[in-house]
Design a protein around this nucleic acid. Structure first.
Length: 197
DNA sequence: CCAAGGATTGGC
DNA sequence: CCAATCCTTGGA
């Protein structure tokens, strides 16, 4: 069962949390590439200084103002793609960054980290930015299996947004996952935390 | 036009 | 720790 527009047309922090455990599917010319989302970040509202939408509807970020259930794929540091899902209501910019996932099918690369996730699933700005997630190419499938314990932390690499926004706990992850990205990878999984000390 | 910096990654 | 690598943005 696909996640529909109503799922995404809600505040980004809520969507980010509920996307954990769901499957992202890319039907890539006959190849099904799929991964289970284990880490997300919310970028929410016109005042969020960490959000690309903070400076208004610029050529790049304008898509964040246009309505939910659309892919926002941008290129960072010259090479890496980052995929977001637009959330919320039209005119109120918000999105969820897909930070990390567990590979399921058709992944020819690590899915740990936003750049790697895009590469593994064959996602890029050229082909996928602006794509409607209600179509046949790129969509989310509901996974009814229990997601497990969720941890909320500050977002990664947003220090320049200032302490107020950098401290906000809008990064969400599945504590039991072995596919978490970033400096705290492995910190929350029972296996690794019990072997520490 | 130019300069600065970036929602990252992998190598040293 | 640090550089790659080029896109986006804002300012002159």
């Amino acid at each position: 069962m696909k996640l529909g527009r109503d799922f995404f047309a809600r505040p980004a922090p809520l969507v980010a949390r509920e996307l954990l455990g769901q499957r992202l599917v890319h039907l890539d010319g006959g190849v099904r590439r799929a991964a289970r989302i284990v880490e997300t970040e919310a970028y929410h509202g016109p005042l969020d200084r960490a959000s690309h939408a903070f400076r208004g509807p610029t050529p790049r970020a304008g898509i964040m103002f246009g309505g939910a259930a659309v892919a926002y794929v941008y290129v960072i540091y010259g090479n890496h793609g980052c995929m977001n899902v637009i959330t919320g209501r039209p005119g109120e910019p918000s999105a969820v960054l897909l930070r990390s996932a567990e590979p399921l099918t058709g992944c020819h690369h690590s899915t740990r980290g936003p750049g790697n996730l895009c590469r593994a699933l064959g996602l890029g700005r050229d082909r996928h930015n602006g794509l409607d997630l209600g179509g046949a190419t790129l969509f989310f499938e509901r996974d009814d299996a229990p997601a497990g314990r969720i941890v909320a932390t500050p977002r990664v690499n947003v220090a320049s947004a200032g302490p107020r926004w950098a401290a906000r706990r809008w990064r969400f992850l599945l504590a039991s996952s072995d596919w978490i990205s970033g400096p705290d990878r492995g910190r929350y999984s029972s296996q690794l935390s019990s072997s520490r000390r």
